[in-house]
């Protein structure tokens, strides 16, 4: 939305792969300014390759200049959809992006790397996996919420996709042994424990 406003032209489509319940969130995206929306009808618990394949199938040939994804889901923390989608569409891909400025048909993108940041230049079209810092989150106002009701929300059935992986089972992390408390004046003892017991310093 920020890029569209800066350019003074263009359109923003939002897409989600999931069940009908997700339409609440999709309407929110329309309420803050997206032009139209698509939901690929699918179950909730699907693997990244399934999600990426659905989006690629929809987006292919539609001429989107920039595709944004998040960096990871907060459930499976896989960081996988963006990269898979970029490969399926054969697009250049910048992951962990924190900032983007357009210079004509080129994007200048900041990407977090270990111990710093790199500034990259990439021509349209491209795909960005954005992380915190990319844009200020907007809160829908009444006018937006009203207009969102009449915007197009297309529902498309999912295509069949091979299963690449599955989660065999879940387990709880090993229980942490009780925290050893050390007196605030006993820093020699803490250092001794770290040195001789935990053997980390």
């Amino acid at each position: 939305m920020e890029l569209k406003e800066q350019a003074g032209a263009g359109a923003v489509t939002v897409i989600n792969v999931g069940p009908a319940d997700n339409e609440q969130i999709i309407r929110k995206a329309l309420a803050v300014g997206a032009d139209d929306a698509v939901r690929i009808n699918a179950g909730e618990d699907v693997e990244p390759f399934f999600v990426a394949s659905q989006i690629a199938n929809y987006a292919k040939g539609k001429g989107y200049d920039i595709i944004f994804t998040g960096k990871e889901t907060i459930s499976y923390n896989s960081f996988a959809v963006g990269g898979m989608l970029a490969e399926l569409l054969d697009l250049p891909f910048v992951s962990q992006a924190t900032k983007i400025d357009m210079e004509g048909s080129k994007g200048v993108v900041h990407r977090e790397i270990e111990g710093g940041e790199e500034v990259l230049e990439v021509a349209l079209p491209f795909l960005i996996a954005a992380q915190k810092g990319m844009a200020e989150q907007r809160i829908p106002n009444m006018k937006g919420i009203m207009s969102a009701r009449t915007k197009s929300l297309e529902v498309v059935e999912a295509i069949a996709v091979d299963t690449y992986s599955k989660i065999a089972h879940y387990e709880m992390p090993p229980a942490k042994s009780a925290c050893k408390m050390i007196g605030a004046d006993d820093m020699d003892m803490l250092v001794d424990l770290l040195h001789n017991e935990a053997k980390v310093i």
Binding site: N77, F79, A80, G82, G83, M84, E87, L88, S95, Y164
Partner: peptide, 24 residues
């Protein structure tokens, strides 16, 4: 490695090689 670059490379390679991935 599942470092910053590996997080970007792994999923692309997964599609390219039609290979399932365990990320992280």
């Amino acid at each position: 490695s599942f470092n910053q670059n590996g997080k970007a490379l792994g999923p692309r390679l997964s599609v390219r090689l039609k290979a399932g991935i365990i990320p992280g």
